[in-house]
Nucleic acid binder design. Structure first.
Lengths: 190, 190
DNA sequence: CTTGTTTTGGACTGATCAATACAGAACAGG
DNA sequence: CCTGTTCTGTATTGATCAGTCCAAAACAAG
């Protein structure tokens, strides 16, 4: 018994996600968000309470998507090493293709230091990724694919840091060969 | 035959550097810059042409300082491994102490994708750091401290990426032990 | 068709943004 | 002390910021 919505909320979140992703939080104005989503100001403020709340939704959505694709790479075919190599290659491919970076890394740098809510989201997501990786690595360790003396959790930290390092390097002007060299060196460390 | 300046230009640049460093480019207003430097708007715009130009100066200054301290760590005492370990420890210490991160990493994420001037500065700095590290690694390789079959340039890329990875991890909520684990794993890869 | 509820577009708010204008202050050379 | 030049504090610019308001529009239920 009321006027129905004229847009898809999830599509709007994903459009906002791309806007924040490419330009960052501060540099994305509410005007930009209107243009990206195709909505009017009222619709945005009526649906999402504020620019910050919309950003949270967008960041959560990004994490969902990214974590799903990471999990898919980790649970794919092949040896543990091959799967990690595939994961790193996937990141490099992404970074070189559209040069858009990673919203999690971007948010950690731009917002986390002064935004406790975002910092909390990122910390929880970090823990989740860490645990996923740790489990996979532990499995590989027990299967004898990597040195039994290594600590799975520490290696998981290392893999995550390597991915972040590759992403930052890509933003600093490193070419594809450089990124692949980093991935190769990291794989050797496992 | 004119009124002399009432402030030290270099001190002003360093004050601005700290402001940009802690809050980022967009989130630092010209008002903030006045407060940080202790100068009036006129003095700032008269000395540095614009907020952007002042940022460039600040970024250049940061790179000078940082590169000097990196070079000092690399040219210190001890084996190659010890010096790299010292460099990583220095970064971790810095990251844990004031949790302020690195202006180069921050700028690469926040500005480089949409600011060609900053992107150029960062790319040139990356090349410089790469060459410094490559030379040190090459020396270590010839001295037999690391596997002669490895490529010094590739390893240099890897070390830089590891440092960036550690910095991003610190911003994502990783604790000191996690960062140290990353450093240890990376050292093992050399 | 009427009523009730929600959405929507667009005008509007006060605040803040980077940057400028300008007048007077401060000094060096004469 | 003057004169010329550069500084500096303050007021102000127009633009843009996030967010609000309100009237008209759109639909469901009756």
């Amino acid at each position: 018994m009321a006027r129905p919505r004229n847009f898809d909320e999830d599509r709007a979140v994903e459009a906002a996600m791309h806007a924040f992703w490419t330009a960052g939080y501060e540099a994305t104005s509410t005007q930009d968000l209107c243009a990206a989503t195709g909505l009017g100001r009222s619709s945005i403020y009526n649906t999402f309470r504020s620019k910050h709340d919309l950003f949270e939704r967008a960041l959560r959505r990004y994490m969902e998507i990214k974590d799903a694709s990471t999990l898919a790479a980790l649970e794919g075919e092949g040896t543990f090493r091959e799967r990690i190599a595939g994961l790193l290659r996937q990141m490099i491919e992404e970074e070189c293709r559209d040069g858009i970076g990673c919203l999690v890394v971007n948010s950690g740098i731009e917002l986390a230091p002064r935004d406790p809510v975002v910092a909390g989201l990122l910390r929880r997501n970090y823990e989740r990724r860490l645990e996923t990786l740790r489990a996979v690595i532990e499995e590989a360790r027990l299967a004898g694919e990597i040195d039994a003396g290594r600590d799975a959790r520490e290696l998981a930290h290392f893999v995550i840091a390597t991915i972040s390092g590759i992403r930052v390097a890509a933003r600093s002007g490193a070419g594809r060969e450089a990124l692949e060299a980093v991935a190769e060196s990291a794989l050797r460390a496992l």
